[in-house]
Amino acid sequence: MKKLKYTFTLMALFYSCLSSAQFNTITPTIPKKSENPKVSEKSNIADPVQQKKSKKSWKQVLNITRKVDLKNETEGSTNLLISQIDSLKTLIKEYSSVKEVRKNEFKKLKDSLMLQAHNRVEKTEQTSKKQKFSTTYNLVDEPAAYFSKIVMPLNNKITVTSSYGTRTHPIFGTKKIHNGIDLKARFESVYSVLDGIVTATGWDSKGGGNFIKVKHFDRFETSYLHLSEIYYRAGEQVKAGFIIGKSGNSGNSTGPHLHFSVKEFGQIINPSHFLNDLIKVNNLIAKHYEH
Rank of each mutant, 00 (worst) to 15 (best):
F147Y: 15
M152H: 09
Y164R: 00
K59G: 01
T78W: 04
N119T: 08
E125T: 07
P153V: 00
N119Y: 01
V160F: 11
S112D: 04
L113K: 05
T161V: 11
E122Y: 04
K157C: 01
F147N: 04
T136C: 01
K157Y: 05
K107G: 01
E73F: 09
V49H: 01
I64K: 11
L139I: 06
S162F: 07
T127D: 07
T74H: 10
D86L: 10
D86M: 07
L139Q: 07
A46H: 00
Y146N: 14
K99W: 04
Q131F: 12
Q60I: 09
T159W: 00
L91T: 14
N156F: 05
S112W: 03
N156W: 03
I158S: 06
K175V: 10
I85R: 07
Q131K: 12
E105C: 01
K53E: 03
E94D: 15
A46F: 04
N155A: 15
T174F: 05
A145F: 08
K176G: 08
S128Y: 02
Y146G: 08
V140Y: 02
H118G: 05
K123V: 05
G173V: 02
P153N: 06
Y137H: 13
P48S: 01
K59Q: 11
T174V: 15
A145T: 15
E125Q: 08
Q116D: 04
K123E: 10
E125R: 07
K55H: 06
E75K: 13
K93T: 15
I82R: 11
A144C: 03
V121F: 02
K56I: 03
K71V: 09
M114K: 09
P170L: 00
S112Y: 03
D141F: 03
N104E: 07
L113A: 14
S77E: 14
K110C: 02
L154A: 00
K110E: 08
T65I: 11
E94P: 05
